[in-house]
């Protein structure tokens, strides 16, 4: 079987973003940056997707939507939080309706900071996500995906503490 990471399909969802990161995500796929020429395809269907790009913080109403989209994606899957709002809540963190970053509801593998995140860094984040996707695929094959996820989580926790 050909490697899935050669042509990762991404699903983009705007949680509670200001649009800045959303148009930059699209700018990654259109001329000038054009990640599509390498086989990265933006899909609207969560069941086709390998990488989940979340922009914006999580609010009361969209948290179930994000969770549902994540659950619908087939394994292995990687979540990328694009922009500082998706990482931590950003400038809106203190408002009454923002719960925080995307990691409040789904496990995030790659954090891409920036306001708005630049296309270069978004592409960097996707490349990183592809690496993790391969690791997860190997783990899934050997039937130890849960183990991998747990170890991955622990590693991230240590990074945060450090």
């Amino acid at each position: 079987m050909a490697k899935m990471s050669k042509s990762p399909w991404v699903l983009h969802y705007d949680a509670a973003s200001c649009n800045g990161c959303d148009i930059e995500v699209l700018a990654c796929l259109t001329p000038v940056y054009d990640a599509e020429r390498f086989g990265v395809i933006n899909t609207g269907d969560p069941k086709h997707a390998d990488i989940f790009l979340i922009t914006g913080g999580i609010n009361e109403q969209c948290k179930d939507v994000v969770k549902q989209l994540y659950d619908q994606m087939p394994n292995p899957k990687v979540v990328v939080a694009v922009g500082i709002c998706a990482c931590s809540g950003g400038v809106f963190k203190e408002t009454y309706n923002i719960l925080g970053g995307a990691d409040q509801v789904v496990p995030v593998d790659v954090y891409v900071p920036g306001c708005a995140a630049r296309p270069e860094s978004i592409i960097d984040g996707i490349v990183k996500a592809i690496g993790i996707l391969d690791e997860k695929k190997a783990a899934l094959k050997e039937g130890r995906l849960d183990e991998y996820e747990a170890a991955h989580c622990k590693k991230k926790q240590q990074e945060v503490e450090a």
């Binding site: 705007d14 969209c62 309706n97």
Partner: peptide
């Protein structure tokens, strides 16, 4: 509507 509601008008007090 309300999927992107952040309530940023309230931030003027902060």
């Amino acid at each position: 509507i309300g999927f992107v509601h952040r309530g940023l008008e309230s931030l003027v007090n902060k």
